[in-house]
Every structure is written in structure tokens, then in C-alpha cells.
Nucleic acid binder design. Structure first.
Lengths: 175, 175
DNA sequence: AACACTTGTTTGACATGTCAAACAAAAGTA
DNA sequence: TACTTTTGTTTGACATGTCAAACAAGTGTT
């Protein structure tokens, strides 16, 4: 059992991923360039923290700086940022549109997971969604039926699917 | 945008969750009791680290100790451990059996996510799986068709679903 | 030019989680 | 009983990521 130690073995930490995303976001209005202050404001952390964190990202070649201390993603940094955004989008769509999880919760969950889930799994999930929503045999109806179930489930024993118990841990619904 | 800070806002850290799981695992053979050494061996970390980490778990009321320094989960600790195991099982089943992700990758991904995903999302995912596999209208066939697609996808433009592009980021398949 | 503000960096602090090493107490063995 | 080993704790170190505060360099205003 050393699977659990893989938790640390990711390309990006949560913090690093969001620094890249913040640079990308801020840079949209300034031709890709961002200032430390802007990044700090975007992430709601201090300039000092951003300054320190950028040092590591520079050393890893994900970020570049100007003579005027302006910050920009390198091609590798941009690639990494786009990968994170794409993965998050897939997760969020699945949580919200397929599973029917409330929008805010879908945002939080996808943001927590975006940099941790493997590309292989994210890709299969994306394919699954495409498969579900593009199949000619009215698979849409299947989804619709599932969504309807959520709305109508009485969360007690009379319910055919949940039978009044949480499907995760098997315990009776608290509701 | 302060959604990203929610990453730290979980009931359990990854480390804490696995300490609880390790106590539970070891305890199966000893009536719920475990020793610091056993936990350390199970997690492949030093006794010193376990000792320090248990202090925090004790303070939070998730773990109790004996006069002989034997360690046990409290009812709350057991509940937390079971919740983590249940969530992981749901995630792993989805990744492996529905999406068709290789077993080892499904283990790693579910282990990374188990303590981060909300109960709401895990519950909907579990329901979705039950829905998929128990519906009378041959939904099993749907799954089978998706699985078959994976096996047959040529990963190039001739493929109807992936069209030679990664469904996550839209870039051409590297394969 | 003088003063005030903004910006980026550095420093010292804290929290978490890990290690190795030293140590003390308990258990096992002679 | 005496010796050895195992066990649990403590300590000092390191890495990451955060803060507040001090500081230096630039930018603006008058």
C-alpha cells in the first residue's frame, strides 16, 4: 500500500496551478502580461507570497519575467494552464450537467480535483459524456430520466433507486 | 474567485484520512486496536511521524489511546474512515467499471480524490451508477457499447466519437 | 524638487507533514 | 537479574505555502 503517497506526485500543486491560471486570466487583458500585484489580487493572497511562488515557477520554466518585472507564461506554462482549465471544464460539466450537482458545489469539487485526476481518466470521462449526449438512440432521454429521478426521489424506502439509503455508504438518509 | 481556497477546507487532510484508514486496517486483526509501529509500517512512514500525527487526531477526538499506548478509532473516527472508504469505492468503481480506466490508475485517482470530493457529488455519482446498471431498459448494453468503443477507437480522424482529438483539451491525440 | 503612493522583494513567523537521530520506557531473552 | 531489542516520543532539520512587516525602487502629484 503505497498508492496513498501518490497524492504528492503531481505535475502541479494546487497553488502552482492557480498561479498559472491567474497569470493567464490577468494576461487576457494585457497581451499575456501580468504584474505580481494583479496576480495577488486575483488569488487573494499577499504580493509577498506571489513573489516567492513565482520564483519556483520561473525556475521550472513555466513563467518568464520582463526587465520591468512583468510576468508571462512560457509556452510550457500556457500548455499546463490550458490542461488544467480543460480538465476542470470536463469535471464541472459532468458534475453539474450529468450528475445534477448544484453549480457552486460542482465548481468547488472540480477545482479541488482538476490538477489531481490523471489525464487518462479525464479523457475517458470526456469521451463518456460525448458518448452519452451524441448517441442517436435517444440517450438524452436517459439523462433526462436520471435528472427527473433526482427531483422526485422521496429519499425514503418507497424510492425504487435509493431505497431510503445513501448510495455511498449505505446508511439511511439523514434527510 | 476564492473558490480555489476551498482546497484546504476539508474535514480531513489526505494524511489524516490515511492514518484513520491504516488504524482501521490494522485493527481488523486486533479487535480495533493498533500500535504506532503497525500504523507506521502500513503507511510506510516513520514512527515519529505517526506519533506526531496521532497527537492531532487525538485532540480532534477521532482516535483514542490505551494505558498501554494502543490506538483505536473513536466512533467519530470510525465513521470518518468508513465515509472515506465508501467514497473511494464509489469513485474507483466509476473510473474502472464505467469509464474503463486501467485498474491501477483508477486506484490512484480515487485515492487522491476520496477525501476532497463533496458527499453530495459522491452520492449523485453512486446513484448514477446504480441507475445505469439497474434500469430495465437494457442500459447495460449502453455501457457495453461504450466499453467496446474504447477497445476499437483508432484514435484518428476516422473515429466517429473522438475524431482523432483529445476530448479534454481538443488537441490531436499524441498516440 | 519634494513628497506620497504603489510595487516587488525580503525577512521572520507560523502551520503541516515528513525525515533522521537520540532517547526513555517496555517487552523479550539470556 | 542483566542484557538486548522493540517501541513510542522528542528534537532538530527540511520543504511548501501562507502571513505581516519592513524595505527599496519606481511612479505620480503638486
Amino acid at each position: 500500500m503505497e498508492t496513498w503517497k501518490q497524492f504528492e506526485a503531481n505535475e502541479l500543486t494546487h497553488s502552482a496551478a492557480h498561479h498559472l491560471l491567474a497569470i493567464h486570466e490577468v494576461g487576457l487583458q494585457y497581451g499575456g502580461w501580468a504584474r505580481v500585484s494583479d496576480i495577488a489580487r486575483e488569488l487573494q493572497i499577499t504580493r509577498g507570497s506571489v513573489s516567492i511562488n513565482l520564483r519556483a515557477l520561473k525556475k521550472r520554466g513555466l513563467v518568464e519575467t520582463d526587465a520591468h518585472r512583468l510576468v508571462k507564461l512560457t509556452p510550457e506554462g500556457l500548455h499546463a494552464a490550458k490542461a488544467v482549465m480543460a480538465t476542470r471544464a470536463v469535471l464541472k460539466t459532468f458534475f453539474a450537467d450529468v450528475l445534477g450537482v448544484p453549480d457552486i458545489q460542482a465548481d468547488i469539487d472540480s477545482c479541488k480535483i482538476e490538477h489531481l485526476i490523471s489525464h487518462a481518466t479525464a479523457e475517458r470521462l470526456a469521451l463518456f459524456q460525448r458518448f452519452l449526449t451524441s448517441d442517436p438512440d435517444a440517450l438524452q432521454q436517459l439523462l433526462a430520466r436520471f435528472q427527473r429521478f433526482h427531483a422526485e426521489c422521496p429519499h425514503d424506502r418507497s424510492c425504487d433507486v435509493c431505497k431510503g439509503h445513501c448510495p455511498v455508504d449505505g446508511l439511511p438518509h439523514a434527510i
